[in-house]
Design a binder for these strands. Structure first.
Lengths: 146, 146
DNA sequence: GGCTAAAAGTTGTTGATGCAATTAAAAGAT
DNA sequence: ATCTTTTAATTGCATCAACAACTTTTAGCC
C-alpha cells in the first residue's frame, strides 16, 4: 500500500507501536494486581518453557524474537527469582538447557489467567472476524520485516 | 471477543508485540542506513516538534504516550546531540519549552523519508482497505486500555 | 499575605534492548 | 591430530521504560 494514503495518526501509531505498549503495560499491571512480580518480557520466556522444558537459550531467542544477550539476561533474572535453572548441556557443553523450578511451574495458571484477562480487556467490543483479519495482516507485516 | 477462540501464536503475538518490535528495529536500521544516529524513540519526539515547536515536556509526554521521566531523559539526550534546546518557560517558570536547533530542523526530511520507507517495506503486499480495518481495530484496543 | 495543594521537571533504582566484542566448546578441514 | 571456523552463551556500553521520591514554582483558599 501507498504511504500517502495514511493519516498522520496512523502513520505515527504504526511506527511507534502505541497499542503494543499499552497492552504490555496492562499485562504487567494485571500480574502485579495479584501479587505476581514478573515482567511482561519474563512472561514471554516462561510461556514457552511451560510448553517445552529443557530447550536452549538459542531456541528461546528464536521463539521470543529476541537476541541472545537479551535472553541471557532475562534468564539470569528469572534464575535469581528462582523460577528456573540453567543446566549445562549434557551432550553439547556450550549449551544451557533451561528447566523450570517447582515455583516456576506453580505460577503458570495464575499467569495465564492474567494474560487472558488482559486480552479480554483489550478486545472489548471487537468481533472475532475483525480480529482474525487484523491478525492475518500483522502476520504479513511481520514476515515482511523479520 | 472470547480468548478461547485465539490460536496459540496469535495469543502470544498479541501480548508481546512482536510486530511492533520488528517495525521499531527496521525504522532504526533505516535511520542508521543513511548515517542518522537517532533512535526510534527520539524520532517519535522530533515528529511532534517538527509540527509544533515550543511545546512543553508534559505535552510531549501526552502526545508520545510516555511518562514524564522518559520524556525528560529523551529530551536530555536530544539536547546532548544538539538537535533541540530547553527554554525555561517565560510565563510559567516550572515549564520547559522545547525548540529545535537548526540541525534539528535540517534532518526532518531525511528522517521522514526513512519513516516512509519503513512503512513501505512493512506494507508490501497489504491492500489499503485491510489496513484501514486493522487500524480501526487497533484504535478500539488502544482506547480500551489507555 | 501566608499556608496548603497541585503541577512540571528531575533523579534514583531496576529491568530491558541492540550492537559489538569476547570466551569456551564443538565441528570441519587438511 | 592439529589448526581453523562455527556455534552458544556472556559481558560491556549506551539508550529506553516504569515506578517512586524529590525540588521548584504556581495556584487555591482562608
Amino acid at each position: 500500500m501507498d504511504v500517502s494514503e495514511m493519516y498522520h495518526d496512523e502513520f505515527y501509531s504504526f511506527l511507534t507501536g502505541r497499542v503494543s505498549t499499552a497492552i504490555g503495560r496492562r499485562l504487567q499491571r494485571n500480574f502485579k494486581l495479584i501479587g505476581l512480580n514478573i515482567t511482561a518480557e519474563q512472561w514471554s520466556v516462561l510461556y514457552f518453557l511451560w510448553n517445552a522444558e529443557g530447550i536452549s537459550q538459542q531456541e528461546l531467542a528464536r521463539l521470543t524474537f529476541r537476541d541472545k544477550p537479551s535472553i541471557s539476561r532475562l534468564i539470569s533474572n528469572l534464575e535469581k527469582q528462582k523460577l528456573l535453572v540453567r543446566v549445562n548441556g549434557s551432550g553439547d557443553r556450550r549449551m544451557n538447557q533451561i528447566y523450570l523450578t517447582a515455583q516456576g511451574h506453580r505460577i503458570k495458571d495464575k499467569c495465564m489467567a492474567q494474560a487472558e484477562k488482559t486480552i479480554s480487556e483489550a478486545m472489548s467490543g471487537v468481533d472475532t472476524e475483525s480480529m482474525r483479519q487484523a491478525q492475518a495482516l500483522l502476520e504479513i507485516v511481520f514476515n515482511n520485516l523479520k
